[in-house]
């Protein structure tokens, strides 16, 4: 406004009026802001409503064609045959078996890594190792799928020739590797939050570090450790690309880990990428499967939160 100073007529009144006008406008904007921002926050609620509504409304169409009890109790899944049969049990079976393999790999390794990072490692080592583990968590799952299919499966087959080219074992193991960082980092948080006085008490009684860790620290942090396992399983249940690529699409109800099995997620991928025409039973079936998947992961997540809240020891 410097150039105004030299001009002869500065209308102060006008300036004040302008200022108060602009203040009024900005006051009005300020009043509108919270409601606009609320709409953004409401998007998250709408997303949940959207997910539940779409899944339910289409699944209800499906259950008009296939009785709900048949869907959840039948072990035959033949969506493409002349007389299609829809039983979800083979998919649930595949999902559970792959998740069990994953947690058998990731549980021990992840927990031991958490123990090392929180109890043994020096600050410098921890600061070096933790980010590296997190890189593992940041790798896209399709890359893990590639790794399972072109690297892990051939290795398993060279030691164990019975294993088929697509099998549930290899993606299970790779999925385990994928969730190691999750277990390691969440369990480490739980272990680190155990106060040092407890450790010192055990050590001063003559326990070795190993005994302190397994008899004192881990029991004290148990809720957090279990919660990390449950969250990791939930993640494995929802994992899609690794199993889709490396486990094939066999819909047999079997417990043989050398065979191909299909998970719920892989079924959804197979059907939706196969141009299933809208309105056919096979099209609606993915919504029914998705509901089962959604409920399973949702319950696991709630469980994890309940465990870590209920059994948390306060120090």
């Amino acid at each position: 406004m410097d150039h105004n100073v030299n001009q002869e007529s500065i209308n102060v009144q006008e300036l004040i009026q302008q200022k108060s006008m602009s203040q009024k406008v900005s006051h009005k904007i300020g009043k509108m802001i919270p409601s606009i921002l609320f709409l953004f926050a409401a998007v998250s609620i709408l997303t949940t409503v959207g997910i539940i509504y779409t899944l339910l409304s289409e699944a209800i169409e499906f259950f008009k064609i296939v009785p709900i009890w048949e869907f959840f109790s039948s072990t035959t899944l033949k969506p493409l045959s002349q007389n299609p049969e829809f039983g979800i049990l083979p998919l649930i079976n595949g999902t559970i078996i792959s998740s069990i393999i994953a947690i058998l790999v990731a549980g021990p390794v992840g927990l031991m890594a958490a123990v090392y990072l929180s109890e043994y490692a020096s600050d410098r080592v921890r600061r070096l190792l933790k980010p590296t583990l997190e890189v593992l968590a940041g790798i896209p799952t399709v890359v893990y799928g590639f790794f399972a299919f072109t690297f892990v499966t051939p290795i398993i087959r060279s030691v164990w020739p019975d294993v088929e080219a697509t099998n549930i074992l290899s993606p299970g193991i790779v999925m385990g590797i994928m969730i190691i960082p999750m277990i390691a980092s969440l369990s480490e948080d739980a272990l680190t939050s155990v106060p040092n006085t407890i450790r010192e008490g055990a050590l001063s009684l003559g326990a070795t570090k190993l005994e302190t860790t397994f008899k004192v620290v881990i029991p004290a942090a148990l809720s957090g450790v279990i919660a990390s396992f449950v969250l990791a399983i939930s993640r494995a249940i929802g994992e899609t690309m690794i199993v889709t690529i490396a486990s094939g699409s066999s819909k047999n109800f079997t417990f043989d880990i050398t065979e191909s099995m299909q998970t719920m997620t892989a079924y959804i991928v197979e059907v939706s990428s196969g141009d299933a025409a809208a309105g056919t039973p096979i099209y609606y079936s993915i919504y029914a499967v998705a509901i089962a998947l959604f409920v399973m992961t949702f319950v696991m997540n709630l469980l994890a939160r309940a465990i870590s809240r209920r059994f948390r020891e306060e120090y």
């Binding site: 899944l55 929802g238 959804i268 991928v269 939706s272 998947l293 959604f294 992961t297 949702f298």
Partner: peptide, 12 residues
Amino acid sequence: NLAGVPSIVYGI
């Protein structure tokens, strides 16, 4: 809760 929903459900 939304953070724990599998990505494929978002796809649907």
